[in-house]
Amino acid sequence: MLEDLLEKYPQQEDQLIEILLDYQSQKQHRYISEEEIARIAAHLGVSESKVYSVVTFYTFFSTEPRGQHIIQVCKDVPCYINGERTMRSVLEKLLGIRVGETTRDKRFTLEQTSCLGHCDGAPAMRIDDKTFTNLDENKIKAIISEYRGAK
């Protein structure tokens, strides 16, 4: 899979972040392994350290396996004053995990994120590449059960 993906990209250093984003989004547990970092580094003709420095700088990337779905709850002021704590505790209870953890069935990882840019719909969360706004307990429950139902 990685080889096919690399073929699509020119061998230029500035493609690194695009490659990492593209690859990680397709990967089962949404992380980049050590071997993959080495392969990408070789493809672009840069050192592994350089790739690793990029992977560890940006919050989207992980070097550890995560869940099938990444749930990110916003923690910044507009969400905070509009019920961010409730949103977080509902999710923690619903999933049986705390922020930073992955459910035992590897379906969900719960993370905190900086502002999602949906402050007019606070509180907001993002699951994979979709953003959900104006959340309350019922809405969150409905969303999660939908994700649970879907494969």
């Binding site: 970092i37 050192s47 592994e48 350290s49 350089k50 790739v51 690793y52 420095s53 700088f57 070097t63």
Partner: peptide, 26 residues
């Protein structure tokens, strides 16, 4: 060579080889 690099960010930033490995592994 670019073996030593700046990893992570904020106060967690550090200068190490990839994965914080030993120099002898690089």
């Amino acid at each position: 060579l670019n073996i030593l690099e700046t990893m992570n960010r904020s106060h967690e930033m550090k200068v190490t080889p990839a994965y914080g490995k030993y120099l002898s592994d690089e």
